[in-house]
C-alpha cells in the first residue's frame, strides 16, 4: 500500500472512533464599524509601530510626494509595472519632469535579468488590494503585471493604498473580497519592512527583503 493510503486508512479507522467537530465562533475577531478616518489613523499607528512609513497624499499629489521621498533616499532606479495605472502615470510624468529616478519596467521573466534586479534596483512601487487597519497590513496579490519580487527584492518598497480600501480586520477583508472563491498563485499581507530579531532579540531591518516600506495613502 502507498504511504498515502496507509496514512489515510489509519486516520479513517482511528481506534478512538469518530470525532465530533465543534462549532467555531468567529465573533471575537469582529470589530465595531470604524469610519475611514478612524481606520486610516489606526492603520498609520500600527504600521508605523513596526517601522513602516505612511504619507497621506492625493490623486493629484502622490507623484510629487514620491519624487521627494525617492530623492531624499538618493534612489537612482524605480521598478514599475507596465500596465498598471501607477506605472503608466509615472511614465507619463517622467516626460516632463526631472526629479524622478530612472524607471525600470518588470516586463520580462526574472531569469533574464535576475542579477540586475538583485543589485541595481533601488526601489519598487506596487499597488495594493487594500489595507487592514487593525494590524497595519497591506494586501497584495502579485500578478503578471506586478510580479512577486517587486515588493521583495528592492531595498525600498513603495505601496500605493487607497484610503477607501481600508478594512478593519483581516477577517473582514477576506470576506468582503470573497477570497474563498479563488486565490491567486500568490497573495500577501505585508506589515512593515523585512526584519529580524534573531540576534539577541535586537531588531534589524532589511535582513532579506526591503529595509524600508513606504505607504502612499491616497485620500
Amino acid at each position: 500500500m502507498s504511504s498515502r493510503d496507509t496514512i489515510l486508512q489509519r486516520l479513517r479507522n482511528r481506534t478512538g472512533g469518530e470525532l465530533t467537530a465543534p462549532e467555531c465562533d468567529f465573533s471575537v475577531l469582529k470589530r465595531p464599524d470604524w469610519t475611514t478616518a478612524e481606520k486610516l489613523d489606526m492603520f498609520e499607528r500600527t504600521i508605523e509601530s513596526v517601522h513602516g512609513e505612511v504619507h497621506r497624499t492625493t490623486e493629484a499629489g502622490w507623484i510629487d510626494r514620491l519624487a521627494e521621498i525617492l530623492q531624499s533616499r538618493g534612489a537612482q532606479t524605480l521598478l514599475i509595472a507596465k500596465e498598471h495605472e501607477i506605472g503608466k502615470a509615472l511614465k507619463t510624468a517622467t516626460q516632463n519632469r526631472e526629479d524622478l529616478p530612472q524607471l525600470l519596467v518588470y516586463d520580462e521573466p526574472v531569469e533574464s535579468w535576475q542579477e540586475a534586479l538583485f543589485t541595481e534596483v533601488d526601489a519598487g512601487i506596487t499597488s495594493t488590494r487594500g489595507g487592514i487597519a487593525e494590524t497595519g497590513s497591506l494586501i497584495l496579490w502579485p500578478s503578471v503585471d506586478e510580479p512577486r519580487l517587486m515588493s521583495l527584492v528592492p531595498p525600498i518598497h513603495i505601496a500605493v493604498l487607497k484610503a477607501s480600501e481600508l478594512y478593519t480586520t483581516f477577517h473582514e477583508a477576506m470576506h468582503s473580497q470573497n477570497w474563498a472563491a479563488g486565490m491567486p498563485t500568490n497573495a500577501l499581507l505585508i506589515s512593515g519592512p523585512s526584519k529580524t530579531a534573531d540576534i539577541e532579540q535586537t531588531l534589524a531591518y532589511g535582513v532579506h527583503g526591503p529595509k524600508e516600506l513606504i505607504v502612499l495613502v491616497i485620500e
Binding site: 510580479p147 519580487l149 500568490n186 500577501l188 523585512s194 526584519k195
Partner: peptide
C-alpha cells in the same frame, strides 16, 4: 511582516 499565501506555481505568463 509577511503572511505569504501560495496557491500554485508560476503561471505561463507570470514573470517570477
Amino acid at each position: 511582516t509577511y503572511f505569504n499565501m501560495i496557491s500554485g506555481p508560476r503561471k505561463a505568463d507570470e514573470m517570477d
